[in-house]
Design a protein around this nucleic acid. Structure first.
Lengths: 109, 109
DNA sequence: TCTGCATGCCTAAGTTACTTATATAAGCAT
DNA sequence: ATGCTTATATAAGTAACTTAGGCATGCAGA
């Protein structure tokens, strides 16, 4: 079956943290935003999304609060914590480092 | 502990196939080459390497043959098959597509 | 009115690809 | 003979997914 892979394994945390770096969002909006910004290349399914959000919350990188959306519905809004901002920088640096390294291998054989 | 992560999950197949695209190599040499070319950013441990090679062989993307190395030792040399070359192109395209998408998210928040 | 769709949350089971640890063996140098 | 480098390999454990469900609300259309 291999994987259709609409995500690069291990980058979801980075994507979520980065998406939250502008303003708090609820899970559904985060997934939609990632999909839009990536030109639909990245698909965050709910089975990946919610466990990831709980993971990040448990790590103390994001915090949750129920609030009403623009459309008048209850939703769980997440925002970056200070620790989350630090973590985002780490993951960004890690991504740049490793993806560049992959790029090197691709170019230099 | 998180992961020290000296690899991006799911890219190992691509790295191996690409490394074999110039000439046949044995496992040990593949790992060394990836490490060198990446400026030591990527580390392929043996526990990841050998299962990956067997996986790729089973898929029919590489084929193995025992041969003697320059240093006069027996080693298992792998070379890309035709199917492997096709697969390499697929994985390359996939990588470019997805890593660019991650780049978009990073830049556009 | 009720039917369906989009929004919004969630979990469970299964799979995959790793990490970590261990085992084996040959060649070479001290 | 002791230890280091080269070289292969497997086993147990884990993290992060995929796939497949379930539940509830608001709104639009027939």
């Amino acid at each position: 079956m291999s994987r259709p892979s609409d995500l690069i394994q291990g980058t979801l945390d980075l994507l979520i943290l980065k998406t939250l770096s502008t303003e708090p969002k609820h899970g559904w909006a985060i997934a939609k935003r990632i999909q839009e910004v990536s030109g639909a290349a990245l698909q965050v399914t709910q089975g990946a999304l919610y466990p990831a959000l709980h993971r990040l919350e448990q790590q103390g990188w994001i915090s949750a609060k129920w609030r009403t959306t623009d459309t008048g519905r209850e939703a769980k809004f997440y925002q970056l914590t200070k620790a989350g901002t630090v973590q985002l920088e780490k993951e960004l640096a890690q991504w740049v480092r490793l993806s560049n390294a992959v790029g090197l291998v691709i170019r230099l054989a």
